[in-house]
C-alpha cells in the first residue's frame, strides 16, 4: 500500500503548490484582485457564505437535484440498456432514436424544456435526466455486449434459463464497469445542473454563482465554483473507494 500513500502525498503536494502559486500571483498585484482574488480571500468568502448566506443550503439543493435526476436516469438506463444489449431487436429499434437525442446539446433543449415544464423543479430534473439517461443507456448496452460469450455459454451448459443469465451472468459481469460509468455520468450531471440553475432557478449553486457574477463578486463566484469542485471530488472518491471494496475480486 506504500504506492497508494505515495500517490496521495504527491497529489496533495501538487495541489498545495498550485494554491501557493495562485496566492503569490494575486498578492503580487500582477493581476487585479477583481479578476483573480487570492485563495485566502476566496476561503474567507466561502466561510462567510456558509455562515451568513446559506451556502450549504444551496449546495444541498443542488446535490439533491443531481441525485434525484441521476437516480431516475440510472433506474431507467440500466434495465433498458441491459435489454438493448441482450435482445438484438430491442437494441436495433432504440439505438437510432437514442443516438439522435444523445447528440443534442442539453442547453439547446432548455427553451423547449421550459415550455413543457415551466421553471420549477421538473425542468431541472428533466434537463439533467436528458443529459445522462441517453448517454448511460448506450454505455450500459455496450457493457452488456462486452460480457464474454464464454460466460453465457457456461451458464447455458449448466442449465440456466435465459432470464437467469441476465441476473446471474450479465449483471454481475458488467457491474464493475457499470459503477464506473455511473460515476462518470454523475459528474456530467453537474454540468447540466449549473446550466439549468443559471437559466431558471432561485436556489442552488448555479443560482448563487450567477447572482454573484451580476454584482461582480469574483470571490463569491469562485467560492461557488470551488464548492462544486469539493462536492465532486468527495463523491468521486467515495464511489472509487466503494468500487475497490465491492470489487475486491478484480485485484490480481
Amino acid at each position: 500500500m506504500a504506492g497508494s500513500r505515495h500517490r496521495i502525498l504527491i497529489g496533495t503536494a501538487a495541489s498545495l503548490g498550485l494554491i501557493l502559486l495562485w496566492e503569490a500571483v494575486s498578492r503580487s498585484g500582477a493581476v487585479s484582485a477583481r479578476f483573480l482574488p487570492a485563495p485566502s480571500v476566496v476561503v474567507a468568502t466561502l466561510w462567510t457564505m456558509i455562515a451568513e448566506r446559506g451556502l450549504l443550503y444551496h449546495a444541498g439543493v443542488s446535490t439533491l437535484r443531481v441525485w434525484v435526476a441521476f437516480l431516475i436516469a440510472a433506474a431507467m438506463a440500466v434495465p433498458i440498456g441491459i435489454l438493448m444489449g441482450s435482445v438484438r431487436w430491442i437494441g436495433a429499434a432504440l439505438e437510432p432514436v437514442i443516438d439522435f437525442i444523445r447528440y443534442l446539446p442539453v442547453p439547446a433543449l432548455v427553451p423547449l424544456s421550459i415550455i413543457w415544464f415551466g421553471v420549477g423543479e421538473s425542468t431541472k430534473i428533466f434537463l439533467l435526466w436528458l443529459g445522462t439517461f441517453f448517454q448511460l443507456v448506450l454505455l450500459v448496452a455496450d457493457d452488456v455486449r462486452r460480457v464474454p460469450h464464454e460466460f453465457h455459454e457456461t451458464a447455458m451448459t449448466v442449465g440456466a434459463p435465459g432470464w437467469r443469465r441476465l441476473t446471474d451472468v450479465s449483471l454481475p459481469a458488467m457491474l464493475p464497469t457499470l459503477v464506473d460509468n455511473m460515476r462518470i455520468t454523475l459528474g456530467w450531471c453537474w454540468t447540466y445542473l449549473i446550466i439549468a440553475e443559471i437559466v431558471a432557478a432561485d436556489s442552488g449553486l448555479g443560482f448563487v454563482i450567477w447572482q454573484a457574477r451580476r454584482f461582480f463578486q469574483t470571490p463569491e463566484v469562485m467560492a461557488g465554483v470551488i464548492t462544486i469542485g469539493i462536492i465532486g471530488l468527495l463523491t468521486d472518491q467515495v464511489i472509487r473507494a466503494a468500487h475497490r471494496r465491492w470489487f475486491r475480486y478484480l485485484v490480481r
Binding site: E150, E153, T157, A173, L175
Partner: peptide
C-alpha cells in the same frame, strides 16, 4: 448434460 470448459474466461471472477 453437456458441459463446456473453455480456454479463457472459464471461471466467473465474481
Amino acid at each position: 448434460r453437456r458441459g463446456m470448459v473453455f480456454q479463457s474466461y472459464s471461471a466467473f471472477p465474481w
